[in-house]
Write a protein that binds this DNA or RNA. Structure first.
Lengths: 236, 236
DNA sequence: GCATCAGTATGTTATAAAACATACATGCTG
DNA sequence: CAGCATGTATGTTTTATAACATACTGATGC
């Protein structure tokens, strides 16, 4: 019986699973991509790319989980994105034709597909639907980024943390039990995702537990009362 | 002698001035755009579009200045973009194929070109370079947005305001004297751009004046000591 | 077995910035 | 011209949250 992987594929993923890319390609283009990509595996805490580096390939996350963060001023990092399969990673810098302005680090073991720059630009030229997919992705992510700017600057601590938990649910979903968040972050990562100190993330998680909105068991977080969590996120 | 307009064109702008669009088109495509766009004029404080509306055209700012802002939670707005000629506005929602998640209001009288959705998608299909321009724009703006998220959440008030002044300089430049910011915002707009209350914007501007880093005369702001301003922006 | 370290937890203090309260110009309007 | 709204200015109070200090746990290594 096949092992069930983190990303819900029952077998090791291939680039054919990257639907945003692969589904829109012609047979000829598929052939081109199949023959010209490489696969890399990363383990937890591996650095995929770092701020300042110039991308020379387009990266697709086949399986695993990745955090993308910017180093802040007072030493505190800001996680600007939590990536899930099967999305592109580091593609902002790739398409902006500039350096990475954030770093990507593995949260859960990853399979990543690398498509060389030349091939990607071939596809952009030959396949108009692929270009549209990229445009739509970037536009949606820009919308999310601006939304987060407002919430991270204006919501209070409780609201920020509640929102982060809900965003993590939207990105990674629940385990089979329907309440356990399918992502296991340290308190520090949770804090860096929510623009607060680690102390305050720990403290605020505790109050949520006391209020019976969530349960916490190490890094395992269960959302008991999503409705209240949404209320806290909105008003907090 | 021709009047010198806000955007530094000496005559009323036409869609031919929108280089990001027009420069990459074939003669046939240019003809198509020329025959299928409309021009609108807006005066100060006019609403160009509002949060929740669905865009049905691509908008190019031919002349004038525009603020794009999201309504916050505690009543305070967050200005997420200050647009200058000749850039696209509201194009994030247009390409995300969703509603506007921010509103656009005129700061200085505007000429705006409207290109119908169908024409834009024709161009995206026929002109690969135009698609690339859109992709690059979105990617760069996403980079800026993430940068701002970190600075607006982590820098202190002085740093945030100093940075905002420098960003405004980058976007709109100086008057001919080389020190007067070529944009005239209310204290409230300045505050909403910098994630602070109006009171604190006023107060902090005053301290900058006392420190002889800037001068203020109503809405006219002159940057006397850019180097110090950059230092405040970095460390503050 | 003990030392070391990272992660988690919680209480106390300090402080940046919001909230609140006034006040004063300026420009508009009946 | 009086009355009102709007934008600007500044002092005082309050509060959310960072900073700091300390302690406990479990894992890892010698």
């Amino acid at each position: 019986m096949p092992r069930r992987l983190e990303n819900n594929f029952t077998t090791e993923p291939t680039i054919k699973d990257v639907s945003q890319l692969y589904d829109v390609l012609t047979d000829q283009e598929k052939e081109r991509v199949l023959n010209n990509h490489t696969v890399k595996h990363f383990k937890k805490n591996d650095v995929i790319y770092q701020e300042g580096e110039f991308p020379d390939s387009l990266l697709c996350l086949g399986s695993g989980k990745v955090k993308v963060y910017k180093v802040g001023f007072g030493g505190r990092d800001q996680i600007v994105r939590m990536a899930n399969p099967t999305s592109f990673i580091g593609y902002r810098a790739f398409f902006a034709e500039g350096p990475h302005v954030a770093s990507a680090v593995v949260i859960e073991p990853c399979t990543i597909f690398y498509i060389p720059k030349a091939i990607v630009y071939e596809l952009l030229e030959s396949n108009h639907q692929f270009s549209l997919n990229i445009i739509r992705s970037l536009a949606q992510e820009l919308g999310f980024s601006r939304y987060r700017t407002v919430t991270l600057t204006q919501k209070h601590i409780r609201g920020r943390l509640a929102e982060s938990l809900l965003v993590l649910r939207d990105i990674y979903g629940f385990e089979d039990d329907g309440i356990t968040l399918n992502v296991y972050l340290s308190r520090e990562d949770l804090a860096n995702f929510s623009n607060m100190t680690t102390s305050n993330a720990i403290r605020t998680l505790s109050t949520f537990v006391n209020e019976k909105v969530i349960t916490v068991d190490g890094r395992i977080i269960r959302l008991l009362d999503v409705e209240t969590l949404e209320k806290i996120s909105k008003l907090g």
